[in-house]
C-alpha cells in the first residue's frame, strides 16, 4: 500500500545522509504579465556515484531546478518561495553568498547545453580552466596551466597542450563540450549537474560525450544529475529517473521499471510518442493538447486536461507523490491501477 512521500519531503529539514537533496522546492517567476509558478514542490535527491535523470519537456521546470541548486537563478524575475536544497544536509538556500560560492565548483558543478555561449569568447579555453586553479587553489600561473592541460587531456582533447591557447570559437561543438566538462570537473566536484549536455550535438558526437561523462563519473564516484528531454539518452545512462511536468515530479523510478511499466499517464504518453520500429505506418499515439500555461495551471492534477484516464477527482485534488515501493513514486490518483495493469 502507499505511504506518505519520501523522507525529508515534509520540509522538516532533518538530515538524511544524502549527498544532495532538493526538498519541496518552490520557485515562481514574477513578470509584468503575472506570476508563473515554475516549480511547485519538487523533491529529489542524488547520492554519490549514481546518475539521476530529470526528464521533462520545455517549461517543465527541470532547468530552473538546476539553476536554483547552483544558485544562479535570475532574481528577479525568479524567486524561491519555499523548500530547501540541502548539500550534505545543510540548506544552501540559507547560506551566505560566500558560502555558496565555495560549494560551487568544488561541491557542485554544472555543464550547460550551449557551450558556445557558456564559455567566455574573449579568453582562451585553457585560461578559463586554469583560472579556477589559480583563484580557488592558489596555484601559480605555470602550475595552473599544467593542471589545465591535464584536464584537457583527461577529457580526451587531442593535442591538449596546443589547444590550451585556443579560443572557444576555434573548437568544434563536441570539443567545446569536452572543454566545458574539463572546466566543470577541474575542482573535483561531488555532484555534477549536466543540463542537456548533448542536445546541440550530432548523434555520433553525442555518443562520444555521453561515454566520456559516464567514464569520468565512475572514476570519480560523482553524483550526476542529467537533465534531458531525450528518452533515448536517459535509457542509456540513468540509474533513476524523475519525470517532471508543470513544475512537479510526476513519477520517480528505477530506469528499468520506468520503461517497463510507467506509473504515470504522462510518462506512458511520452514513451508512446517515440516512433518505434514495430509500429511503422501506424499513427503515433500522442498526448493530446499542450502543456499548461504556468501562470494558470489547471486545478487538481496539472496533467488532467491532457490525460486519457482523467476522472472528476483529478480536477479537484492535486495527487501527492506517493511511494509505490521499490523506490517508485507516482503523482497520479490511479497509479496503482496503471502499475498493476497487464
Amino acid at each position: 500500500m502507499s505511504e506518505q512521500s519520501a523522507p525529508g519531503a515534509d520540509g522538516s529539514g532533518r538530515p538524511s545522509g544524502r549527498l544532495l537533496e532538493v526538498d519541496g522546492l518552490r520557485v515562481e517567476f514574477r513578470t509584468r504579465d503575472g506570476v508563473a509558478k515554475v516549480i511547485n514542490g519538487v523533491t529529489y535527491h542524488v547520492d554519490a556515484g549514481e546518475t539521476l535523470a530529470v526528464l521533462g519537456e520545455s517549461g517543465s521546470g527541470k532547468s530552473v531546478t538546476a539553476q536554483t541548486i547552483m544558485g544562479i537563478l535570475d532574481t528577479p524575475p525568479g524567486f524561491v518561495t519555499g523548500g530547501q536544497v540541502r548539500f550534505h544536509g545543510k540548506d544552501m538556500l540559507k547560506m551566505s553568498a560566500e558560502q555558496r560560492r565555495r560549494i560551487r565548483g568544488e561541491g557542485i558543478a554544472m555543464i550547460f547545453q550551449d557551450s558556445l555561449s557558456a564559455l567566455n569568447p574573449v579568453f582562451t579555453v585553457g585560461f578559463q580552466i586554469a583560472e579556477q586553479f589559480r583563484i580557488r587553489r592558489g596555484l601559480s600561473r605555470s602550475d595552473a596551466k599544467k593542471r589545465a592541460i591535464e584536464m584537457l587531456d583527461q577529457v580526451k582533447i587531442p593535442n591538449a597542450k596546443g589547444r590550451y591557447s585556443n579560443y572557444p570559437h576555434q573548437f568544434s561543438g563536441g570539443m567545446r563540450q569536452r572543454a566545458m566538462i574539463a572546466m566543470s570537473l577541474a575542482l573535483d566536484p561531488e555532484v555534477l549537474i549536466a543540463d542537456e549536455p548533448t542536445t546541440a550535438l550530432d548523434v555520433t558526437v553525442q555518443a562520444q560525450i555521453m561515454d566520456l561523462l559516464g567514464e569520468l563519473q565512475r572514476e570519480r564516484q560523482m553524483g550526476m544529475i542529467l537533465i534531458t528531454h531525450d528518452l533515448g539518452v536517459v535509457a542509456d545512462v540513468a540509474d533513476r529517473i524523475a519525470v517532471m511536468y508543470a513544475g512537479r515530479i510526476v513519477e520517480e523510478a528505477d530506469v528499468y521499471d520506468l520503461y517497463a511499466k510507467p506509473a504515470h499517464p504522462y510518462t506512458l504518453g511520452l514513451l508512446n510518442s517515440i516512433p518505434r520500429m514495430d509500429e511503422k505506418g501506424q499513427e503515433l499515439r500522442t498526448i493530446k493538447g499542450l502543456p499548461p500555461n504556468l501562470m494558470n495551471i489547471p486545478p487538481g492534477c496539472a496533467f488532467n486536461p491532457r490525460c486519457p484516464m482523467a476522472q472528476p477527482v483529478c480536477r479537484e485534488k492535486v495527487p501527492p507523490l506517493l511511494q509505490l515501493g521499490r523506490g517508485r513514486a507516482s503523482a497520479c490518483h490511479f497509479a496503482e491501477e496503471l502499475v498493476n495493469r497487464d
Binding site: 548523434v203 533515448g232 536517459v234 535509457a235 542509456d236 520503461y259 517515440i274
Partner: peptide
C-alpha cells in the same frame, strides 16, 4: 550511436 529508448 542512436540512443535506444529501452534500458534493457
Amino acid at each position: 550511436a542512436v540512443p535506444v529508448p529501452d534500458p534493457t
